[in-house]
Design a protein around this nucleic acid. Sequence first.
DNA 1: AAATATTAATGTATTTTTTACACTATCCTA
DNA 2: TAGGATAGTGTAAAAAATACATTAATATTT
Lengths: 218, 218
Amino acid sequence: MNFKKDRFYVTVDAVVFTILDNELKIIIIRRKNPPFKGYFALPGGFVELDENLDGAAERELKEETGVENIFLKKLKPFGKVGRDSRGRVITIPYLAIISGKNVKLHSTCDAELARWYSIYNLPKLAFDHKEIISYALNKLRSEIEKSNIAFQIIPKKFTLTELQRVYEIILNKKLDKRNFRKKLSELLILKELPETKMEGAHRPARLYSFRLREYKKF
Amino acid sequence: MNFKKDRFYVTVDAVVFTILDNELKIIIIRRKNPPFKGYFALPGGFVELDENLDGAAERELKEETGVENIFLKKLKPFGKVGRDSRGRVITIPYLAIISGKNVKLHSTCDAELARWYSIYNLPKLAFDHKEIISYALNKLRSEIEKSNIAFQIIPKKFTLTELQRVYEIILNKKLDKRNFRKKLSELLILKELPETKMEGAHRPARLYSFRLREYKKF
DNA sequence: AAATATTAATGTATTTTTTACACTATCCTA
DNA sequence: TAGGATAGTGTAAAAAATACATTAATATTT
C-alpha cells in the first residue's frame, strides 16, 4: 500500500477474546511489515472505501479465525496524530468473544500465524494496542454482567458449572455457586434440557441451553 | 472543499446538552451547504490531518458556543457507506453538557445561527444525526448516574433542589427529595457552604459546591 | 402582629437485592 | 460397600433502594 500524507486512513482492529486452558486470551498476530515490523499487534486491517465498518470487522475476523456470524461490538475510536508513522490512521476497535476450541488461526499476508495470548501475559505491542486491549477488557467485563454475551463462548449445551467458570475467568474472581444459579434462574434465560453430562467419577450435571441465542441486554 | 471519491474523511459531531426553561436541549444548526442544505444537523466539522480527534471536538465546540475546557466524551463512530453523499465520511460523535445560560451561539461559515432545541421536539435531521443523538442521550443518562458529570451544568454554588432538578430533567423522571439527598451525602462529593440562597417568600436554601470539580466516575 | 403561602430540611420503616454459608445427591473407582 | 469427586439445593443476614410526612424559615397578606 502506498501511503499518502494528505488523507485519512481508517482501520478496524479486533480484540477477540476466548477462554483456553482456563485462561482469558486474545488473538495476537506478529507483524510482517513496517511499521512495528516483528512486533505483536491486534489483528486488523484497512477498511475499504465501499465497505461498512462492521463489515470490515467481520471480514478481518473471518480472515484470521474463520469465524463468522459472531457478535462484534464497536468501541470508541483511537486516532491520535502520530500513532501510525505511515500516515494519519484512525482505528476502530471491535470487541468479540468466541469459542476458541475449534478455531483454526490462519496466517495472512500481513501477519505471521496468529496466536492466543493470555490477557495477563501479553508481549510488547505495536501502536496503541495495549491501551485498546485494556479498554476492551473493561468493556467485556461490564458487558458480561449486563448481557448474555457469554453465550458466544459457550457450547450449545452446557452445565451451570461450565457457565460459572466462564464468568469467573472473565471477571477474574470467584463467584458463589448458589448465588450465581439463583440470579440465572431469575433471569429466565436458560432452558433445562432433558440430558445430563457425565464427566468423571461423580454425579452427572444437568445440561442447559440459552433460551435466546441472540445478543440481548438484560 | 473539494471531495475525492478515493479517500476517507473524518468528522466530529458534538451533541451538546444543556438545560434551558426546565427542558433538556441540544445545539442544532441549520446547514447552509449541500448535502442536506437547509436541513437541521448537529454542529460539527472535518478533522484536520494534524489534529487530534479530541482537539477537533474542542475546536468545533469553541466555534459554535465559545465554550472551552469542557468535558467531552468520545462516543462510538458512525460510518456507514453512503451516509454522506459527498464521499466516504466517518463521524465521531462527542457528548458534552454545558451550562447554557451565558453561552452565545455563533453562526459559522457552514451553518446558520445555532439554536437550542428540546430533545423531545427535534426537527427533521440531516445524515444519521437522529440516531447519534439518541445514542448520546442514553450515554448521558447512564453517565449522570455513575459520575459527577452534572457539575458541568450547574453553577459553582447551588442548592440541593437545583441539583435535583438537573437530574430530574436529564433522566426525565421525578426523584424523591430525601433519597436523593441521602445518596449525595453518602458520596461525600458536596461541600456545604456557609451561605444560603433566598428566592421567594420561603425558607432560604443552603448553598453547596462540588468538592471535586474534575470529572470523576463514582 | 397574626395568619397564610411557599419551599427547605430531615429520619424511619419497608421492600428488594446482595451476600454468606453447609449439607445431601449421584456417580465412579477401588 | 466405602471413599472420592462434583452436582445440586435454601435460608438467614446485610446492604441498598424505596416509600413516605412533618417541622423550619422566610415573605406576603390581612
